[in-house]
């Protein structure tokens, strides 16, 4: 791994990250090795977030730098090949079109070693079911900003159960008004208060 790259990524030093990636590429370092360094840097970003040295602004910026670096190596950091921890499916539940929180979580998960399937907003239950069947994720995320969408999440989770897809699957929920009581009400496994918590919970569940 490249110490320079890891540190520059952790310090959100975009110019150095991009220069270092170009240099490593020129030295024929395999793309997956470069990605591993970037992801190591992202792990430090996550740690700093947990220690309240970094905040959402830094998480977003780190994901942006990661994505820019990824472009330099032909987008090799996207998709299943680069994902160390498996697939994460996420969407905003139907009747709710808010996407800020969902986009932040998918971006941060993507730059932390997960293969992210973003279902978008206003997502019907069938779309979650189809995605679970197709991608077989161990963790999915359902987002909402409206309290009026709580019943929709509940219905979605019940349907996932009825379809026999809940075994070994953890369902995370998140969004402005969502709390522990909401989590119990809708029957989710865990409520994530921020993107980094989603990363940490998912890693832990996947035994990382």
């Amino acid at each position: 791994m490249s110490k320079n790259l890891i540190n520059a990524m952790a310090d959100l030093n975009e110019d150095v990250v991009l220069e270092e990636v170009k240099a490593l590429k020129a030295q024929n370092v395999p793309a997956l090795d470069i990605i591993a360094s970037l992801q190591e840097g992202m792990s430090i970003v996550g740690k700093r977030f947990e220690e309240k040295e970094y905040f959402l602004s830094e998480l977003i910026m780190s994901a942006e730098i990661f994505n820019e670096a990824s472009k330099l190596i032909g987008g090799a950091a996207d998709g299943e090949a680069a994902s160390r921890y498996g697939t994460f499916v996420m969407g905003t539940i139907y009747d709710d079109i808010h996407d800020i929180g969902k986009n932040i979580v998918t971006t941060v998960m993507g730059s932390n070693g997960f293969n992210v399937i973003d279902l978008g907003v206003d997502v019907p239950t069938e779309k979650y079911i189809d995605a679970i069947k197709e991608y077989k994720p161990k963790v999915i995320g359902i987002s909402c900003l409206l309290t009026t969408a709580f019943d929709n999440i509940k219905e979605c989770i019940q349907t996932i159960e009825k379809e026999g897809l809940r075994k070994d699957l953890k369902i995370l929920i998140g969004g402005g008004p969502v709390d522990e009581a909401t989590c119990r009400y809708v029957g989710a496994d865990h409520v994530c208060k921020n993107a980094q918590e989603t990363v940490e919970y998912s890693k832990k569940y996947m035994g990382v």
């Binding site: 959402l56 602004s57 800020i100 932040i104």
Partner: peptide
Amino acid sequence: RTMAKFMQDLFK
């Protein structure tokens, strides 16, 4: 700008 893009502006 949207939240993510605006936060990037604050750095860039």
